[in-house]
């Protein structure tokens, strides 16, 4: 690019516009973590359903220990990715905080349900999880203007309403793999193909 001061106001505006567009055309999300978490939660919740409903195993929740190595993997994956990321957009920044907010709200709700409700407190978890989970998925979809995530977020809320009509606690578990499929796995594959398409 030349560096002369002799250019018209129109050219200035065109330059500004083209640069702003160039900054936007890199889409950083490759969808990998959506697929990892989507499939993990999908398999764990199905396994938990089998252990609980078919095998009547009392410690059915042990399947969730599989999330610990996944958190560790995620930590290393993102620290490696941020090293190679040559630009940080406001979109990346805001989405990061949307998911941090989700994690904080989930942890707080976990405590609150345990402390404040009596009786079978665990029977509320699935509805609350679906209601809260729709939020980061929906917001991420709106921020990156990606329809599959917007639909996924709304689907979580619809599933949340439907789940309140299912009185058998065991069957409520089946809503989680369905939510994962719609809100994470399908958008994950679509994000991946979009990423590959843009960053060829």
């Amino acid at each position: 690019m030349e560096n002369d001061n002799d250019f018209s106001p129109q050219q200035s505006l065109q330059l500004i516009e083209s640069m702003i567009n160039r900054a936007k055309d890199k889409f950083a999300e490759d969808g990998l973590m959506y697929l990892v978490w989507g499939w993990l939660v999908f398999i764990c919740s199905l396994l938990q359903f089998l252990l609980l409903h078919v095998f009547k195993y009392p410690y059915h929740y042990i399947v969730w220990f599989a999330t610990i190595p996944t958190f560790i993997f995620q930590y290393f994956y993102y620290s490696k990715k941020s090293k190679h990321q040559i630009v940080k957009t406001y979109t990346d920044y805001i989405i990061g905080f949307v998911w941090i907010t989700f994690a904080v709200v989930m942890i707080l709700l976990g405590f609150l349900i345990g402390f404040l409700t009596t009786g079978e407190y665990y029977s509320h978890i699935i509805h609350i999880l679906l209601a809260v989970y729709g939020m980061p998925v929906f917001l991420t979809g709106v921020i990156v203007r990606f329809k599959p995530l917007i639909i996924g977020g709304i689907a979580c809320w619809v599933l949340c309403i439907i789940s309140t009509f299912i009185k058998n606690y065991d069957y409520q578990f089946l809503f989680i793999p369905v939510a994962m499929l719609i809100a994470w796995i399908i958008p994950g594959y679509k994000l991946r193909s979009r990423y590959k398409h843009i960053n060829v």
Partner: peptide, 14 residues
């Protein structure tokens, strides 16, 4: 041109 291009890029990213 170049300084304006740099500023336009930086105004749109963090």
């Amino acid at each position: 041109q170049l300084r304006l291009a740099v500023m336009s890029l930086l105004i749109s990213v963090k």
